[in-house]
Structures are given as structure tokens and as C-alpha cells.
Amino acid sequence: MRKSTAQEDLLRGIWRENPVLVQVLGLCPTLAVTNTVENSLVMGIATFAVLLGSSFFVSLFKRFIPNEIRISVYILIIATFVTVAEMCLEALVPEVHKALGAFIALIVVNCIILGRQEAFAAKNTVWRSVLDAIGSGLGFILAMLMMGSLREVIGYGTFLGIPLFGDSYEPWVVMILPPGGFLTLGVILLTLGYVEERRRANRVSAMSAQERA
């Protein structure tokens, strides 16, 4: 297997292997707390911080963690960061902390984080693991922002609380309710899949045209 470069480690998670949009992981927060841009962003940043911290420590201590109990140790490390993140959020942005509720504590079971530890941080150097965590974390924030902006703009008619369409805009209440999360994620995945299919079809027809020529 070819070794990936540092640049690839960083960029991979942002778009090409985006944890939400391509790997379809971490759907619980993606569906549950993306009803406003602010909530999505804070959730994204909290997850980013937890992922970065956990990847750093897991790759740093990977020599001392016996294989048999590695998952327990990863969860312990992740849970510590989540608890710290929860306290920091409550101290810094109490209103958002209230809105996110139990979903901050649930970052512990976000499979993106455990997935990156098991798939990458446990086998790679600290430097590469940090790059990988930054990439995946940014990819997660990106997906959360896509969901949050679509849902807030349609569901409230605002962006980050700023009204976009004037007073008489009729909010589409469904978009900020749970069904709206599923609809939005479905539409995003559908659009990306459609674009990808079209691109692939174009590539194939271009290649066959070359062969004939």
C-alpha cells in the first residue's frame, strides 16, 4: 500500500472522504442539532476540539496502550475531552449550551472520533494524526454548516439570527423540526451523488472518445 503524504492526510477528511457527506458517520449530531447555524457551528467546533485532543493523546500514548483494552482507553480519553468541552461551553456560551443539551455529552459516542482513533491515530505518528484530526474535524464542521445554513435560512428565514427576507417571511417550520434534518441531509447527499455520477459519466465518455480517436 502506498504511503500517504502529510498533505493528503490533512486534505482527505475535508472533502474527498468527508466524515458526514461521504462516510455518512456521526449522523446523530448532524440530524439533531443543526437547526441553526450557531448551534451547528458550536457543535462542530466542540467535536473538532475533542477529535484533535483525542487523536493527539491516542497517537502519543499508543505504545503504552495494551491492545486488549485499547477501546476502553480511547473512550476514556475521548470522554475526558468531551466533559472538559462541555464545561467550557457552559462557561463560555451558556445559551448555546442550553440549546445543544444532551448532544454535547453524546459527542463521546460520535463514531467519527472513535473511528479516527482506531483507523488512524493508533497506527500513525503524532504529527500525522493531528493533521488527520484537523482534516476530519474541518470536514465535520463543513457538513454541519451546510446543514445548519440550509435549515436556518429556510426554517427561520435568518442566517446567524439576521433576518434575510424581511418581516413577512413565512418560516417553513418543518425544516427546524426533526423531519427537516432528515430531508436536508437526504437532499444534500442526493445532490452530491447526482453531481458525482454526472462527473463520472462525463469522464467515461471522454475516455472512450479518446480511445476511438
Binding site: 503504552f64 496502550i65 495494551p66 486488549e68 483494552i69 480519553i77
Partner: peptide
């Protein structure tokens, strides 16, 4: 060793 590692991490 397993117990020690977990306790230490905890």
C-alpha cells in the same frame, strides 16, 4: 498490566 493501565489513565 491491563488493570494498571486503565487505572492510570482513569
Amino acid at each position: 498490566k491491563l488493570v494498571f493501565t486503565l487505572v492510570f489513565a482513569g
